[in-house]
Structure formats: C-alpha cells, structure tokens
Computed example of a mutant assay.
Amino acid sequence: MSRTAADGVRVTPARLADGREIVYFDEDGAPPRVPEPDRRDLPPLSTASELRFDPLLREWVVIASHRQGRTHMPAADACPLCPSTADRATEVPAGDYDVVVFENRFPSLAADGGRVLDDVGEVERSRRPGTGRCEVVVFGPDHNASFADLTPRRVRTVLEAWTRRTRALSALPGTEQVYCFENRGAEIGVTLPHPHGQIYALPFVTPRTRRILDSARAHRERTGRDLFADVLRAEQEAGLRVVARGEHWTAFVPAAARWPVEVHFYPHRPVPDLPALTDAERDGFGPLYLDVLRRLDRLFGLPLPYISAWHQAPVRTGRDLSRLRLEVFSVRRAPDRLKYLAGTESGMGVFVNDVAPETVARRLREAAP
C-alpha cells in the first residue's frame, strides 16, 4: 500500500521474486503505484557473510566470500538497475520509477538464518554470522546520468529515501549504525555504472566513528564545547577553505584533508542524523550539494570519481557527541593521475596529501559557472 510522506513523496513497498524488499519513492504528481510483479525465477537469498574480530586493532572485519560472483560492469543493455522491459526483467520490476530502494542481492551483511560457525583457531573466539542489512538506492532510471545531473527536486526525494530507510533500519534488532553512501567512477571500484548508492545497517559502531567520538568526548571534557561546532566555526571565520555556503549548510575543504580532493558538508544546526533535519534543512541541501558536485566535475574537465559518505550518529551510543555531516572525497589528484594508498597510508595509516587543501578550495570556488 502506498503512503505519502510530508513532502509529497509517495512510498510504496513490495517484494521481489526471492522475497527481498523493494520500496518505490515516487514524487508528487505521480499516480498511485501498483507494484509490478517480479517475473524472474530467483533462488532464495543465500549468503556466507561472517564477522571476525581483529585483536590487534580491536575492530570487526566482514568476511563475505559469496560476493566474488556479483555482477561486474555489465553492458548497458544488461544493467540490473535499469527499469524492466517486456523483453528483460531487472532488479526493478517497474517500467519507470523516480527513486527506488531494494535489498542487495549480493549483500555484505544479511539476516543470519540461525547459522552456527565453528571455531577457526582465533586468539579471541569471535567468529559469528555477519548479521545486518545492505540496500541499494537507485537515483533514477537514466543509465547514463550521474548524481550531479539530478534536479533539486530529485535530490530531495533521494534525501527522503535516505531518511526513511535510516529510520527503518535503525529499528531493526542488532543495528548499531546506519551508513548511507555513494561510490562513483570505475577508479573508485564501482561495479555498476548506473547512478546508485547503498545503505548499510551495521551490527557494530564503525572504527572511524568510535575514534571520532573519542575525540569529541575529549574536546568536550577539555573545553566544554562541541568539537564539530568549533570546526565549523573555525572554517567559516577563516573562509580560506569554504567552497560554498547556504542558509542551512556550509561546504568546505578540511584543513587536514587526507585526499587530493575532499569536501565536507556540515548543517549549521547540530543534529545527530538525517531524520533530525527540518524540512527547510532538507530543502537547502540539494541546491548546495549539486553546485559543489558540478564544480568537482569542472575541476579537471572530466567526471570526478568520488565516494560520498554520510556520517550519522550510532543508534544507541554517543548520540549527544555526534553530528550529522557528509564527506565527499576523490582519489584523482590530476587529470591523468590517481592517488594510490602507498606504504605510509596502507602500512601505517599515515596519509600524505600532495595537494594543499587551500589550493583545492580556491580552485573549486573558481569553478563556479
């Protein structure tokens, strides 16, 4: 049954042939959707995902050997994210859609199914099923488009999908953190070129989030202030690295950027996650984000490969210390050169950036149309 959200987006859930959930997000003005049946004969979803704990770094590692056989860079006429046609059924049974979200057919994390895993000789026995959920978010039916080609209205619809799925996945038993992200470009490792992103419901708080929360806690104990508010204030007052600013959001290159191109988006009001944004803050995000994405593509005169990562507060811990923000970064450092993680980065986690953050910010400001 379709449900209409506050901003006019109509939400219609359905099921795929193997039982996976699919949710359509149709924009205002679209007629009520009657979900088309999935015509494919699919076997039940089966995964071999498991979690193992690294005793040296005190971090969880996901082992997902079943993903070796996932779809990799298919031809355009074999894309599984395009709308279905009379001659070919895809992951989206509909002949057209605005935004659609569905459970990944090759998930890194999934329901455990009651599996029992044997001991494999760990120092600290930790091996357990990789419980969680992985979803695909398709930004539109145009196979050759990118996020930067979307309209502000479509970005608002995508934001509604991220928000509603964050709420739904946060409510699942065992979810500790919800992570929404987009990978764009073959240089990043994208296996499907159709514009899309993913959402992970993680059964643990990620290592980076834990470390950032430790920093925020130490900053509050030392100064009595909010770390993220101080970072945003310092960037706004200096102005050296601010790329664009609106009524509700500021985009800036961080002073200690690790990547050759890196831009952070902070809402001006401290909120823990996407559901906490107001309608005005959600409306203000799209125009600013599209502006910066288009500047990124003009930076080297070709589509920029990037990862766009939403940082949201964990579901149960550190919510008073967290702040919603978006981080976009790229491995491209010149039109014909990529940054590879070399010995210091891969071996020791010490990043060396060949490009000054102030230079990147200035060039992005100059890239305005």
Rank of each mutant, 00 (worst) to 15 (best):
L117T: 01
D7T: 08
G185T: 09
S308K: 09
I63Y: 03
A5F: 06
H66A: 13
F252K: 04
V92F: 04
P83H: 05
R70P: 12
R295G: 02
N144L: 11
A110C: 12
E91M: 03
R52Q: 06
D7V: 03
L338R: 14
F181V: 08
V242C: 10
R154I: 11
A6P: 08
S215M: 13
R165E: 03
R208L: 04
D41E: 15
W162H: 09
A313T: 03
R319D: 04
Y289N: 06
D112G: 14
F204N: 01
G301H: 12
R210H: 07
E135R: 14
L117P: 01
P195W: 04
R67P: 05
D142N: 12
Y289M: 12
W60Q: 08
T4K: 12
V261F: 00
G246P: 02
L299S: 03
P275Q: 10
R363K: 10
G132Q: 01
A256M: 05
E160F: 03
V261L: 02
V271L: 11
P207V: 11
R115A: 15
H66K: 14
D28C: 10
T317W: 03
E36K: 13
R127M: 02
K339F: 07
L42V: 08
P260D: 00
D112T: 15
A313E: 01
G301F: 11
V62R: 00
L293K: 05
P193W: 06
A367H: 06
W162S: 01
L326E: 00
